[in-house]
């Protein structure tokens, strides 16, 4: 889930921080800049792991800050493709299930990656799985007796496999003159989303598989 990324950057340490050791001051600055932010194509930054190289602090004309060139290692949340992670169900809708790991919640399970056959129950606002059912259309599935359904409820702890991740950089460019003051409000995409799957044996709510033996596995 987590990885180390090596980043090179220049940071300014404000004179008010000169009382601290340079190492501490630089780490603070870096944490301020990176913690809980998404770096494009890198992942969600958690915190500085350690400093690898720090140049000499230089004073530039115009401010009293010490500017350091730093090479450091950053702890980053970025599960790799095909990794299995544990997450909690945040919500469900017609398009799939949304998961959360507490500090990050742009994790989605689209319909195609839900176990087959599955249907969305609009009454419960949750997807359910009908193991061993031959039904194909959602109408047939919704006619099934409630006791046979295995619901994926909000708050369930699920095991999922990471299928792919996507980064979006939606920073607006410089305002164009001919647009005037009119603001076009687009629906903002989140900068980093992960698509997961629970369509395999062993994936999905942990409680489904708690006491399942190997026999069940072989059937599937």
């Amino acid at each position: 889930m987590f990885q180390l990324s090596i980043i090179k950057d220049t940071v300014a340490v404000h004179p008010s921080q000169f009382g601290l050791s340079p190492e501490q001051a630089i780490t603070n600055e870096l944490n301020k800049k990176y913690a809980n932010r998404v770096l494009h194509d890198v992942g969600l930054c958690i915190c500085v792991f350690d400093l690898a190289e720090v140049g000499e602090g230089k004073v530039r004309y115009g401010d009293g800050c010490l500017w350091y060139k730093v090479v450091f290692r950053l702890t980053v949340f970025r599960p790799f493709a095909s990794e299995v992670i544990i997450a909690k169900v945040k919500s469900s809708d017609e398009d799939g299930v949304r998961l959360t790991v507490g500090f990050f919640d742009d994790i989605y399970v689209p319909l195609v990656y839900l176990p087959e056959p599955t249907a969305f129950d609009p009454k419960e606002r949750a997807h359910f799985w009908l193991p061993g059912s031959e039904a194909t259309s959602s109408h047939e599935l919704l006619d099934s007796p409630l006791t046979d359904r295995m619901y994926i409820d909000a708050g369930d702890v699920v095991r999922v496999r990471v299928e792919s991740d996507e980064f979006h950089d939606d920073e607006p460019g410089p305002p164009k003159a001919h647009e005037g003051v009119q603001q076009i409000i687009e629906n903002r995409r989140s900068p980093y989303t992960i698509a997961c799957s629970m369509s395999e044996q062993g994936l999905g709510p942990i409680s489904w598989w708690k006491n399942a033996g190997v026999e069940t596995m072989e059937e599937g």
Partner: peptide, 24 residues
């Protein structure tokens, strides 16, 4: 800012937890 190595190493959950607890 420059990314020198996007994935230099993988960390286990336990390592990250220890790191964060120390930080806290």
């Amino acid at each position: 800012m420059e990314v020198l190595n996007q994935r230099a190493a993988l960390l286990s959950n336990y390592e990250v937890l220890t790191l964060l607890k120390e930080l806290e």
